[in-house]
């Protein structure tokens, strides 16, 4: 059939989109990272990045925070996803878990300004036990807490999808053959649900490197992640070339993470939210 072989004119907008909004922006950001403000080719930006301890420390920090957020999210979400598969009305429970993700991220972050404040909910609760007010707002801990909160549903969903696809007979067989609960988890459940864990990690680790509004609102306005640094250079310092350089480094890190966790695009998460 003729029009089966020839994609045809109708797809022109889509192809243009790929050219102008997928390929061109990448080329532009790479080009900016290799030029200075006078548009002369230079390696100066990369030199600044790698010669200056602050940038390297910030990248390490950013990586470390993303790691902690991902780990905390995984520890909370895995049991939740597992227990979900044991319930009767699973779809309804899932809907309840997804629903908060549809509330604007900024509103949730804003709520934590109240919750974590010196006289907020958490400190009122601590005072019941005679514990003095703890400063949580505008600290790195506050940032980690809120980021973990935000990411939990995005970890539960892929893990749930992976566990629900496991044939229950395999778990039963493992138990019948005398495996302990831990052995069943370690050798049956975990390996079979690993794909879900990996896509969850992918959906959380990369955005965590770049969450800038949370560090601004909750983390106390300091530049502690790569995302904040990029925002700072683009919107405040107006040194786009340096900002583009940090962007390219973030892209490289992102590709590394994707190679490590397998190349399945995490459905539906352009972090959006961030």
């Amino acid at each position: 059939m003729k029009n089966k072989r020839h994609p045809g004119l109708f797809a022109i907008p889509y192809v243009l989109w790929i050219a102008f909004f997928v390929i061109l922006p990448i080329l532009l950001i790479v080009w900016y990272s290799f030029t200075n403000t006078n548009q002369h080719l230079t390696l100066q930006n990369y030199h600044t990045f790698f010669a200056n301890g602050t940038f390297l420390r910030m990248s390490l920090n950013s990586f470390w925070y993303a790691f902690l957020i991902t780990l905390a999210t995984l520890l909370i979400s895995y049991p939740a996803a597992y227990f979900l598969t044991k319930l009767k009305k699973q779809q309804f429970w899932l809907l309840l878990i997804i629903l908060p993700t549809w509330i604007n991220l900024l509103l949730k972050a804003y709520a934590f300004i109240g919750i974590l404040g010196r006289q907020g909910l958490v400190n009122q609760f601590l005072q019941l036990f005679g514990l003095g007010p703890v400063n949580m707002l505008f600290t790195n801990f506050g940032f980690l807490l809120v980021a973990t909160y935000i990411e939990i549903p995005f970890m539960i969903l892929p893990i749930y999808n992976a566990i629900v696809a496991i044939d229950p007979a395999l778990i039963q067989a493992s138990e019948d053959l005398g495996a302990s609960k831990w052995q069943t988890f370690r050798f049956v459940l975990w390996p079979l649900s690993r794909a879900g864990v990996e896509s969850g990690i992918q959906a959380i680790f990369i955005p965590s490197l770049s969450l800038f509004m949370l560090t601004r609102l909750i983390g106390g306005n300091r530049v502690i992640t790569l995302g904040t640094a990029i925002e700072e250079y683009f919107m405040t310092t107006m040194n786009w070339n340096m900002g583009a350089t940090i962007g390219v480094i973030l892209i490289v890190m992102m590709i590394l993470v994707m190679l490590l966790t397998g190349n399945k695009p995490a459905h539906g998460r352009r972090m959006h939210h961030e």
Partner: peptide, 24 residues
């Protein structure tokens, strides 16, 4: 190839999308 290109914006962090579109 097309699917890979299609998914670039799905996996890119928002800051990168925002910054590169601003340059664009």
């Amino acid at each position: 190839v097309f699917l890979a290109l299609n998914n670039v914006l799905m996996v890119s962090p928002d800051v990168i999308i925002g910054a590169s579109f601003l340059i664009f």
